[in-house]
Write a protein that binds this DNA or RNA. Sequence first.
DNA 1: GCCAACGTTGGC
DNA 2: GCCAACGTTGGC
Length: 151
Amino acid sequence: MKYWLMKSEPSCFSIDDLKKVKISPWDGVRNFQARNFMRDEMQVGDLVFFYHSNAKPSAIVGLAKIASKPYPDATAFDPEDDHYDEKSDRDNPTWILVDVEYIKAFKEPLSLQDLKGYKELEGMELLKKGSRLSIQPVSKNHFEFIKSLSE
DNA sequence: GCCAACGTTGGC
DNA sequence: GCCAACGTTGGC
């Protein structure tokens, strides 16, 4: 069992959107590091913190889980899509994703600012200066600590 | 809207 | 393979 944090701008796709559809492909990722986590390391059943970036405030807002094995991101082949990538080959797709399934939204979002106040979370990728990685592993200790904060 | 940090691209 | 230019992310 691994633990993850996945960022999304709520104006684009929020925890409420995921709640409505229950399960959704995590499409549009165009960063190799983030892709590699989805392609190589995620397992069905892994738990995920859903994070709202560029939000007021930016915060961890809920819990989800990985719900599929990796498969190609269809939006990369759609010229009408914002995330179209003309260099991605259907026979050898560049962009790979997994499905994410809603578990719950936290009663109170855990804001980035608040999270920075806990010494227990020192070293967490999300809290590092200049951290932009949109999909990142979370250690078991950090995951359980944050989950306990949400309860 | 600003800007720091970081990733990607392309000339050489 | 270096690195300048450019684009994107994301906090503030």
